[in-house]
Simulated assay, not measured.
Amino acid sequence: MARAFIGLGGNLGDARQTLEAAIARLADHPDLALTGRSAFYRTAPWGVLSQPDFVNAAVSVDTALAPHALLDLLLATERAFGRVRDGERWGPRTLDLDLLLHGAAAIHDERLEIPHPRMAQRAFVLLPLADIDPSLDIPGQGRVADLLETLDTHGCVRLSQA
């Protein structure tokens, strides 16, 4: 078993409802055991700024799935919620699921990079992770709480309790 951390986000339709439903779907999966969940945060868009604000969250799960198998499950879950990957980066989406960490795995291939390479620079990832485990060490990047202290979080608004 490995502890994995998954970032969730969306900004089309009722994003909070979509994230709630996606978390429930992951929690019901026989190969995942939900071990933690963050609050929801409203955050400004990243990259492409002319789009609605996002709702972001994170969950932790224990899983026996290998990293690529978990990635496949996350991609299938996105598709089930209407996500279309058309090659546009940082654009609007119904649901985005990012595999941030998978145990101690370090993978850098054409399909998957974990630890997620840019998570230490993104308050919309670190704030939810801090709800789950502020002392979490991101290999090669540092502890979540320490990394969060270096970022501007003023554009991130907590919408609910964890």
Rank of each mutant, 00 (worst) to 15 (best):
A2V: 10
R3M: 03
A4L: 01
F5R: 07
G9L: 05
G13A: 03
R16P: 12
R16T: 13
T18K: 00
E20V: 15
A21N: 06
R25N: 07
D31C: 01
D31L: 01
D31E: 10
L32F: 04
L32G: 06
T35Y: 07
G36D: 12
A39P: 05
F40I: 08
V48F: 08
P52M: 04
D53W: 11
V55F: 02
A57V: 08
A57D: 00
S60F: 00
S60R: 04
V61M: 08
L65M: 12
L65P: 08
A69G: 13
D72E: 14
D72C: 13
L74R: 09
L75P: 03
E78Y: 02
V84W: 14
R89P: 08
W90M: 12
L95M: 03
D98A: 08
L100Q: 10
H108S: 15
D109S: 04
E113P: 11
I114V: 13
H116S: 09
M119C: 10
Q121E: 15
L127V: 00
L127P: 08
A130H: 10
A130K: 07
A130F: 08
A130N: 06
I132G: 07
S135F: 14
Q141D: 10
H154Y: 12
G155I: 12
L159M: 07
S160H: 09
S160A: 06
A162N: 11
